[in-house]
């Protein structure tokens, strides 16, 4: 898999890598037994500090999602695919309907993004609190 880093996200890069691996696990793009790219491969591909990659992999290992086999690499140890994956299609359809409604109301892309991210943050904050 290949990592994409967003310097404007305000999220530390190692967490972006952690997040992308988890997303790939959730979406079924990575499965138990799959090998993650080696630290050197990631460094060569995207020119990032090797310690950052190692830190992300350690974090994933602590969560029990991957396991490091010395000299061989880092492998997926458990999946995050939850039963909810089967609901994705229905949720996507609901989201599309909502987006069409927003467009009809004349809301542009930027405002849609702002609305989605502020609502999401609010909902998450409430769940945490």
């Amino acid at each position: 898999m290949e990592f994409h880093l967003d310097p404007r996200s305000g999220l530390p890069m190692y967490l972006q890598i952690v997040q992308q691996v988890k997303d790939a696990l959730r979406l079924g793009l990575l499965d138990v037994g799959d090998q993650l790219p080696t630290v050197r491969e990631v460094v060569a591909a995207i020119g990032i500090n090797p310690n950052t990659v190692a830190k992300a992999y350690r974090e994933l290992e602590r969560d029990g999602l991957v396991v490091a086999r010395p000299g061989r690499g880092t492998f997926v140890a458990s999946s995050l695919g939850s039963p909810s994956v089967e609901h994705h299609d229905a949720l996507r359809r609901g989201l599309l309907a909502w987006l069409r409604e927003a467009q009809r109301a004349g809301i542009d892309e930027e405002s849609i993004r702002a609305l989605v991210s502020s609502t999401l943050r609010e909902a998450l904050d409430r769940r945490v609190a």
Binding site: V39, R40, V43, A44, I46, G47, I48, N49, P50
Partner: peptide, 13 residues
């Protein structure tokens, strides 16, 4: 600059 960074990070690794 990006290519330089890749070589540097490889050297650091």
């Amino acid at each position: 600059a990006r290519a330089f960074l890749q070589v540097l990070m490889d050297g650091v690794a």
